[in-house]
Design a protein around this nucleic acid. Structure first.
Length: 560
RNA sequence: UGGGGAAUCGUUCAACGGUAGGACAGCGGACUCUGACUCCGUCAAUCUAGGUUCAAAUCCUAGUUCCCCAGCCA
């Protein structure tokens, strides 16, 4: 995009304007700044797509992945690894673009001394409780700390001693000297450094004081030459502080821009709550395919492109809102329809015997791999006398306009023949055991030129050639659009969907799927898009249903 | 009762004083060797009340509703 093009959202507008005025000498440099204390989820994906997207949209634009690792108590290398993997998987190049806040600890420390020198920061001996109680309230001003007016020398000495480890955790903090009566609570002498005798995942035991977010973040941006520092709405109150530090230090000043974080219906993105789902065993792990984490979406079969599309389509604004998960599914189907090879699978098998088909005869029938893509070619599908079809495709007393299997109705077996059901074999309890049909040899390939109207087409697999598979069907993890919508005294777990996972065993699938790789994706005709789960092993295939096909027939029946 | 934000179809984003538009969802239909895909049609919104103006979603005034902030978390 050039600066003459139309902005697609308010942040683009700001960027284009800055490009015009030369505010940053024509640079666009963004960053995605996760704390490595957990797994990334769909909300982070949006932020990643936005930030890397802004950079990619402009000539020479750059986006850093910067780990905001200023709290050693919560952070781990494991998360650094998974975050890098997720960002790259989403399609963004991180070559030379991985940074750590911890890499700037010394610079941050020097800046802090500079602020002490200028009389803008002081060491406070008050306890955390004291600081809290003297902060005031939303409507009442806070009170100055008794240590607020120490001399520069005393502050410097104390701060250096803090850094040297002479004090215990919590004994002292460094605070910015701003205004205890500010209406903005963030400006009431915010803590810049706390003492934490903790080993850091990257700096080990080099430090026992660690910078707070507000102190560190703007400087991290400044050091990296960030131009547009995009964050979520709750940081609007922090912007004056972000600016205050940079102005006091007289350093390069990026601008913080806030937007409304992405919320998605039927899901939660609170790290704490996701952790509860895992810890309390409501899901199998952080990458359980029902989770909204990027690793779970990947395992479930969502594609990077569909997530990027979703991110684009949900837009950028300052209004709090909830995006419809259906929009993600739309993007997904749109892509998968174009690229997925089709296969036939019978999830709930019912035996169908073609009584007039020769015993012991097999034949191979060609089937198109992907009607949306000629280059995907064809495959040979084995056909024989005994087949599996979907149990739900047979109905004894069909509703109006039912085109599937019922006695006397001719249907098409995809790629194969027309068959007509003549007899239904039931067990003593009246359960349907088998369908006995006859086929028309003249309809080989699934077509006849005589103008016969066959409206129903269904998938099948040859009994003797089929292989077994387990198929996992997923539904929303929560029953309510807003999982937080609970009765008094309830919590979000009350809204867990007991049917969010349905495991189908003994499914019958085409033998061509035998050597399918982990994560490979297919459309199972008339069912949906599926991928091979990593729980699969040799001889035991397990498929995840990524998303079902739209089913207007089922919807219509349901509405009746 | 302090400060900071936000209010447009069911949802979401646009319209930057000049015809309220797109996407998703919904509904109806056509097509179809997937009741898929595709195509066509259709439903549907400016928080309220005043004001300025030839003209207001947009500007002004007064309200209303919702979100965020009192971590030595980010």
């Amino acid at each position: 995009m050039s600066e003459n093009e139309k902005a697609s959202n308010f942040i683009d507008e700001i960027i284009i304007d800055d490009l015009k005025t030369g505010k940053y000498q024509g640079r666009v440099h963004t960053r995605f700044p996760p704390e490595p204390n957990g797994y990334l989820h769909i909300g982070h994906a949006k932020s990643i797509c936005m930030n890397f997207g802004f950079a990619a949209n402009y000539e020479g634009g750059i986006c850093n992945l910067r780990f905001d690792d200023t709290n050693p108590i919560k952070e781990e290398d494991e998360f650094v690894e998974s975050i890098i993997k997720d960002v790259e998987w989403l399609g963004f190049d991180l070559t030379d673009r991985i940074f750590f806040a911890s890499g700037y600890f010394q610079q941050l420390y020097n800046y802090a001394e500079q602020l002490i020198q200028s009389g803008d920061a002081y060491v406070d001996d008050q306890s955390a409780e004291d600081i809290r109680s003297t902060r005031g309230t939303l409507t009442k001003a806070g009170a100055d700390s008794p240590f607020r007016n120490r001399t520069v020398e005393e502050n410097l000495t104390l701060f250096r001693q803090m850094r040297e480890g002479l004090f215990k955790d919590g004994e002292k903090v460094l605070r910015a000297k701003i205004d205890m009566s500010s209406a903005n609570l963030n400006m009431r002498d915010p803590v810049m450094y706390r003492i934490l005798h903790e080993s850091h995942h990257r700096t080990g035991n080099d430090w026992c004081i660690y910078p707070m977010y507000d102190w560190a973040h703007g400087l991290e941006d400044s050091i990296e030459g960030i131009t547009h520092s995009v964050c979520t709405l709750e940081f609007e109150d922090h912007r004056p502080l972000y600016d205050w530090f940079l102005i006091k230090l007289d350093v390069y000043r990026p601008q913080q821009i806030e937007f409304a974080r992405l919320n998605v219906n039927y899901t939660i993105t609170s790290k704490r709550k996701l952790a509860r789902l895992v810890q309390e065993g409501h899901v199998s792990g952080w990458d359980d395919p029902r989770m909204p984490t990027i690793s779970a979406l990947r395992r479930r079969g969502y594609t990077p492109k569909s997530i990027r599309e979703f991110s684009d389509k949900t837009g950028v604004a300052k209004r709090d809102g909830v995006a419809d998960i259906a929009l993600l599914n739309h993007s997904l189907r749109e892509e998968l329809n174009k690229v997925s090879e089709r296969r036939m699978a019978v999830l709930d098998p019912l035996k169908l015997v073609i009584t007039n088909y020769p015993e012991n005869q097999d034949e191979l029938l060609p089937g198109q791999n992907n009607p949306e893509d000629e280059s995907a070619g064809k495959r040979e599908i084995p056909f024989s006398r005994v087949l599996w079809v979907e149990r739900s495709d047979y109905v004894e007393n069909p509703p109006r306009k039912f085109f599937r299997l019922t006695v006397g109705q001719e249907v098409r077996l995809k790629h194969a023949y027309y068959v007509t059901c003549n007899d239904v074999i039931k067990d003593s309890e009246g359960n349907v055991k088998e369908l006995h049909c006859t086929y028309d040899p003249a309809t080989k390939g699934g077509w006849s030129d005589d103008g016969r109207k066959v409206r129903g087409t269904m998938q099948w697999v040859s009994e003797k050639h089929a292989i077994d598979a387990e198929v996992r069907l997923y539904d929303h993890l929560f029953t309510k659009e807003n999982p937080e919508d609970v009765e008094e005294d309830g919590d979000f777990l009350d809204n867990i969907n007991p049917d969010s996972l349905l495991v189908m065993k003994g499914c019958k699938i085409e033998s061509s799927l035998k050597d399918a790789d982990i994560e490979s994706q297919f459309q199972f005709l008339r069912h949906g898009y599926f991928c091979v789960d990593r729980d699969s092993s040799k001889g035991k295939l397990i498929f995840n249903r990524t998303v079902a096909l739209r089913d207007s027939w089922a919807r219509k029946q349901k509405n009746k």
